[in-house]
Design a protein around this nucleic acid. Structure first.
Lengths: 187, 187
DNA sequence: AAAGCCATGTAACCAGTTACATGATTCT
DNA sequence: AGAATCATGTAACTGGTTACATGGCTTT
């Protein structure tokens, strides 16, 4: 079967709780929003594949409402495969800062445009920072409830640090840019 | 023609200097190493495409050594297209922290493994931080030589801030993890 | 002589997104 | 009644990587 990260995200999440594809999507979009993303286009085919390979099992919930929720549970083989993957070194981080691509060619644009890109970056990071602070506050009181929460906290703290550093950089950059393009100091 | 970021990276770089595909690869791998990457598999086909659309022109250098360097130069149409792209808002940043994916499922692994992932992340970021400091020192004395250098500096400063924040997080995380898994404070 | 860099390029593949399709339930 | 959320899924596409192929020049 395909050996991409999506596979291990699903196994990892299912190692905590049985879930549906829909649940997984929401989990990733919250817990992991800072550093990972998955679309349904990856989730559903991967679930099918994992089931075929007996790393997870499916139980169709025929509940009162007649909905067909498909709840997946990790198997022992799945847990083993997850742990093997965890033991391998991680690849280096991949970043795509489209705004830096625009900023690095800032000599081809005008001043206000460059300011705008930085301001938008700052705003994005302020939103992330707030979200991370919120997550932190939510997780801290329940740290003792599960070992897993501690590791969520660690990832949240990195998101917090980086978004904070990004906002601070943006403030400095705006200042530098204004000095650079604008008023020369009187002499 | 295809409208991906690779196109604009090439136009942007060529807006500074005429270059070969090989030069572009090196430029991206240094100046932009922190926030972008391009492979030859993207560069050469995109150059061909840009030339076909008259956004750049090609000059084959038949120099002494008999090599065939193909030097590309941006056209007015290319410059215009670059500037139009610069004026559009940037998409939000995309991050992939594979190590956080492994760390967030840390409850499925043992202590030393989690430490190792953090230590490797720290080492990666220490290397980046050093590189960024070096770039900063190299660019600062030549800021007056070209408007473009100023914008390079801004991007380098963000790389520096974020890698510094990452190293600091790693130190805190190692401490937290040791406390968490290890010695309970005596009472 | 070998390693490494300069230099160009393609084909096959893999990863991931987007748009679409469907339909029930719950909240306002 | 309409909007939002729950819930599943696929097909086509785009973006990007990797492995391969080629060959000259330069440094050790």
């Amino acid at each position: 079967m395909k050996d991409n990260n999506a596979k291990y995200v699903l196994l990892g999440l299912l190692s905590h709780n049985p879930m549906t594809g829909y649940d997984i999507k929401k989990s990733v979009a919250t817990r992991m929003s800072y550093f990972w993303d998955l679309s349904y286009g990856q989730i559903y085919p991967t679930l099918k594949d994992l089931e075929k390979n007996k790393l997870i099992t499916k139980k169709v919930e025929q509940n009162e409402k007649g909905q067909n929720r498909k709840v997946y549970t990790i198997t022992d083989a799945g847990t083993k495969e997850l742990q093997e993957w965890l033991a391998k070194p991680a690849r280096k981080e991949v970043h795509k800062y489209e705004f830096l691509l625009k900023l690095i060619f800032g000599d081809q644009a005008d001043f206000e445009l460059n300011l705008k890109h930085i301001e938008e970056f700052k705003a994005r990071n302020q939103r992330i920072l707030q979200t991370m602070k919120l997550f932190e506050e939510n997780v801290k009181p329940i740290l003792n409830q599960s070992e897993a929460h501690f590791y969520v906290l660690l990832t949240v703290l990195l998101g917090k640090s980086i978004s904070k550093a990004s906002v601070e950089w943006a403030e400095d950059a705006l200042k530098l840019l204004r000095e650079h393009s604008g008023g020369e100091v009187k002499t």
